[in-house]
Design a protein around this nucleic acid. Structure first.
Lengths: 129, 129
DNA sequence: CTTGACCTTCCCCTGACTGGAACCCCCATA
DNA sequence: TATGGGGGTTCCAGTCAGGGGAAGGTCAAG
């Protein structure tokens, strides 16, 4: 199948699929006219990639996960380690964002938001505390 | 003062300060030897930038905030709108990350993480639900 | 006079794509 | 047979907010 149908079936944009080929995550065959020819297993890999990316795994995580997926001798510990590391990064990011949210929501509720210039948001950026 | 001291006082890396000059967020004078000569108000602007960036505002948000900061005729509504928009983006991002965290933490706790190949993480990436 | 710390510009690199230009291929219709 | 449209292809450039490092100029101390 051509890239268009592979895109519909994997729910990934054609551009993304070409990029994944460029970095070696999929290697579709080629027709004589130069068009990419995707097999069912190529689509299967693309769907896997889409799900892993949707969970926030990096491309390099995806590469490692796909290698483990293909390896019937894998240790589930290796998969789990990738996931726990990723989970830790996510939780750190959530903590950062929640700190920003905390500060910002206080500032926003303290600001009148009218046509006068007085603004605790700017005051805090200038001199916090 | 030279960029090194401006960096220490603003707690921003010299590279970042040069970048901010390149995109027009600060415009330090120059000594005859070509070195940047930062004034107190330049440092003040850098500190403001550092705080705004620490709250997650984009560079373009910072540019707008600094323009409002410099404008004694500003309406606090304009400042507040920038902050509320940014807060909304942060909250959307937190929601995304929490969804990932939710799914990932379930997967991690379901995975034995031993030397056997059976792995609900890979199974779910292959066939969710 | 030399050493070492500082400063300068310049260019390339990051992640994970996205947009666009220029061009090729295939099928249907007038 | 022309042509129009909807595929496909490659390559280049841009995104965001800087970071790394090279090649070279400047300055104060020993």
């Amino acid at each position: 199948m051509n890239i268009g149908e592979a895109a519909r079936r994997s729910e990934l944009p054609p551009k993304t699929i070409r990029y994944y080929e460029e970095i070696g995550l999929v290697t579709p065959a080629r027709d004589t006219n130069g068009y990419r020819a995707f097999s069912e297993s190529d689509v299967h890999r693309l769907v896997f990639l889409g799900r892993a990316r949707a969970l926030g795994f990096t491309i390099e995580d995806c590469r490692a996960l796909m290698a483990l997926w293909a390896d019937s001798q894998r240790a589930s510990a290796d998969v789990r380690r990738i996931a726990t590391d990723h989970l830790a990064r996510i939780e750190a990011k959530i903590a950062d964002l929640r700190a920003m949210q905390h500060t910002l929501s206080h500032l926003v509720s303290a600001c009148a938001g009218d046509d006068r210039p007085d603004c605790p948001i700017l005051q805090t950026l200038e001199h916090p505390g």
